[in-house]
C-alpha cells in the first residue's frame, strides 16, 4: 500500500500463509460437489491469497507470484473453460451443460460423466473469479508508483 514500512514479521507470516490458503482453496474447488463450497468460493480464496501478498510485500515484489497481466487473461480462460464444457455437451447431442453426454468422449460411465462435468465447470468458474478479482485490485491501484 502507500506506506513503505518493511515489517519482517508481517511479510514472513503472509509469505508463509499464502500457499496454505491456496491449498485450501484448491480443496474447496475440487471437493465442491461433495461438500459446501465450489468454484466461486474457491476462486475468491485464491484471489484472497494473492491479495494478501499484494498488501503485505507490495505490488512490485508480488508480481513474482502473480503478474498484473495474468488477471484478465485468466478471466477469459475461465469463461472459455465454462462455455467449452457447455457447448461440448451441446455438440455431443444433449442440451447446454447436459453433462451426461460427456460420457461419449470421456472413458467413464454416464454417472461419473456428470461428476466430471461439474468439476470442469467449477474449475472454469474458479479460474475466472480469481483472475478478475486480482485484476480489479490491480486496476484500482493503477498509476500509483509506490503501491
Amino acid at each position: 500500500m502507500t506506506r513503505k514500512i518493511d515489517n519482517p514479521v508481517v511479510s514472513l507470516v503472509s509469505r508463509l500463509i499464502s500457499p496454505f490458503i491456496m491449498l485450501y482453496a484448491l480443496y474447496v474447488i475440487f471437493h465442491g460437489h461433495y461438500s459446501p463450497g465450489g468454484g466461486f468460493q474457491g476462486g475468491t480464496m485464491l484471489a484472497a491469497a494473492v491479495l494478501l501478498l499484494r498488501l503485505s510485500v507490495g505490488s512490485e515484489i508480488s508480481q513474482l507470484q502473480f503478474r498484473k497481466s495474468w488477471g484478465t487473461r485468466l478471466g477469459a480462460v475461465g469463461v472459455l473453460i465454462y462455455f467449452s464444457t457447455g457447448f461440448l455437451c451441446l455438440l455431443l447431442g444433449g442440451k447446454f451443460l447436459d453433462y451426461k453426454y460427456l460420457a461419449k468422449i470421456l472413458p467413464v460411465s454416464e454417472v461419473m460423466a456428470r461428476s466430471w462435468g461439474i468439476l470442469f465447470v467449477e474449475i472454469g468458474v474458479g479460474v475466472a473469479v480469481m483472475g478478475l478479482l486480482v485484476s480489479i485490485y490491480d486496476d484500482l491501484l493503477e498509476g500509483n508508483p509506490n503501491a
Partner: peptide
C-alpha cells in the same frame, strides 16, 4: 476481499 478493496 471486499475489506481489502474498501481499504484500497
Amino acid at each position: 476481499v471486499t475489506g481489502v478493496l474498501f481499504v484500497v
